[in-house]
Nucleic acid binder design. Structure first.
Lengths: 101, 101
DNA sequence: TTAAATATATCGGACGTCCAATATTGGCCA
DNA sequence: TGGCCAATATTGGACGTCCGATATATTTAA
């Protein structure tokens, strides 16, 4: 279960390249609280050190995107995530349908 | 994202009381690898120290179950989990449907 | 009645996540 | 041009997760 933050960052980047603040804001939308720079940048650095993410300057921003290796890794991690949490997801749907009645 | 193990343990226990090895085996089914005692028991201890889980001896086994506080906490955490990961879940379903074609 | 197997438990170390605090850079505008 | 602000980045400490190693109790089997 360690590595969830990295997983989510890669999932975001698989949709489109983003700069750091954008990623932080997406995480805020998702989790309800915005990760501080001390959370997000070390994670991005770690992903870069492992060759999963690259960065490119764009004016004031630094745009992060998946490398080729990052794309395949992200895909595999996504499949793993989906199959692992499937029982919980099903429970989520069940709870949601019960609420409607 | 910290606390995922505790969340899963509580989710299991919300279905039915279990002893430690059972929880470990459920986690193995889910994640593909079985957590060692050094992972599972400290987590159970932590949950007990916070009054979320109680234990009861039953022969060779120690059966863990949610306290009242644990039940409400688990419910809230479950709702949070569902809403937080909903976008990813939807992506899982999308990927699954694509595979069928 | 030993021996083996099962379940529980702790320890130590590593790692990833998390925040608060602090610093630095680059673009923008008054 | 100077000052402001957004974005990037690092540091230090705390915490939860994770494993391998080791230990102990209890139950079952030989």
């Amino acid at each position: 279960m360690r590595g969830m933050l990295s997983f989510l960052i890669m999932w975001f980047l698989s949709k489109r390249p983003m700069y750091g603040e954008e990623i932080a804001l997406e995480l805020e939308k998702m989790k309800g609280n915005k990760p501080t720079p001390g959370t997000i940048y070390p994670a991005l650095k770690h992903l870069q050190n492992n060759g999963l993410v690259t960065s490119k300057k764009d004016g004031r921003n630094i745009i992060y995107s998946l490398t080729e290796k990052g794309t395949t890794t992200s895909k595999k991690a996504f499949e793993y995530f989906c199959s692992m949490f499937e029982p919980v997801f099903k429970d989520c749907i069940k709870a949601k349908n019960l609420k409607k009645m």
